[in-house]
Design a binder for these strands. Structure first.
Lengths: 213, 213
DNA sequence: ATTGCCAGTTTTGTATACAATTATTCGAAA
DNA sequence: TTTCGAATAATTGTATACAAAACTGGCAAT
């Protein structure tokens, strides 16, 4: 991908993810351009992209703001994700066949069951990507990509403890089994629960964090 | 909205909708700029927007092409739309309350039951917009807006006959009733059928068109 | 005190020139 | 004929200057 626009995209994204630009903050093209070290043109591109991915919202007068991340917003994202990805799993079970099941099993087998957060995140990303690809729907894949690039989704896994990693892996294995047998509704259910559970883990962690303060 | 970018967006959209730019055709920024009468900058904006709405796709080297519209593509769009809008209806039934039901009933009552295609399209757009707004989920609304702006969705109603308009109105009334009673699953089912039926109407019309040739 | 409006400031929109990348053509070698 | 590569053309990317629009603050009228 083009260098400056990519730099702008990842740069702004990082500033949002690490909290430098908090929710509600206005994003000014010129300021960002100076900060990232590119001109306004690639910044504008990046803002459009981030808007498509729900990272930022635009006012009616075209001003950009960092999107909210209230618990309601997160709930909304997880709900949509559960629905869309449940659908992806169902379709994958229908059209993926044995080949998909084999690829998924390989990914699951490679996953260490240790507590390495980054290793789990890699495995998790691979696994979900394979299922989404297996569903064979470009638009579905695009919509999910836009939803899942949301900051909060990334952070959720950080609050997982060892037991939750294991539980996730167990669910992944069950999903492989469902897909192996071509049972669409089983696959959908497992995926839906898998994602809804992730939401509640996050929710509890967020509340615990709030109590600490 | 800004004038040139808007002109570019609607201009390119029209060129795609009326078939001047057929599926698969490459869109060249400079050529479009000349054609529409603006510079490349607003054209680029418009292309990004049209990409978000699945009107165009980009190659790995960032070249833009008019998106395919095979029956499979249409099926995919209607399937996603049925799922998302079914969810919207369910949520609307849960959170919308009597106020939403009243607004919906007004829209339905205002709809003439004659065969005026444009009048029906207006009513239909209003009705669905009200339900989506009633669901109170910005991201869901955004995703649906992107899906439904697809060319084919617009064209579907054109092939409706009088009986199908009446059937649509009937379903709208049933939806109001479900929302009035706060029955989320009833609302979801009616909406899902409503949209899936629309798909099959389109599908048949497409096949009939093919046979004529 | 409140409202409305005007001037100044800030921010985004647009055009355009040039740079970088990607595709294509054409000819030479196998 | 086919394939490879270099030259050339076509296309998209980026920076920048200027235009247009939106916001802000203060002042006047009520």
């Amino acid at each position: 991908m083009s260098s400056a626009a990519d730099k702008a995209y990842t740069g702004i994204r990082s500033l949002i993810l690490d909290g430098t630009l908090p929710p509600g903050e206005q994003l000014k093209e010129e300021e960002l351009a100076e900060r990232i070290g590119v001109s306004r043109t690639p910044i504008r591109d990046a803002l459009r992209r981030l808007e498509a991915e729900f990272f930022i919202t635009r006012s009616d007068s075209q001003r950009s703001f960092v999107a909210d991340q209230s618990v309601e917003d997160i709930d909304e994202i997880f709900t949509l994700r559960a629905m869309l990805e449940g659908h992806a799993a169902a379709r994958a079970a229908t059209v993926g066949g044995a080949a998909l099941a084999t690829r998924l099993r390989e990914i699951v087998d490679k996953a260490g069951n240790g507590g390495d957060v980054d290793a789990f995140l890699d495995h998790n990303a691979d696994f979900h990507a394979e299922i989404i690809a297996g569903a064979g729907s470009d638009r579905l894949a695009t919509m999910l990509a836009r939803l899942v690039s949301q900051p909060i989704v990334h952070r959720t896994a950080r609050v997982y403890d060892k037991g939750q990693f294991e539980r996730s892996l167990f669910e992944h294995r069950e999903l492989v089994e469902a897909i192996e047998r071509g049972d669409a509704e089983w696959a959908r259910s497992v995926m839906t629960s898998h994602i809804r559970r992730a939401f509640h883990v996050f929710e509890e962690a967020a509340q615990a964090l709030k109590r600490e303060k």
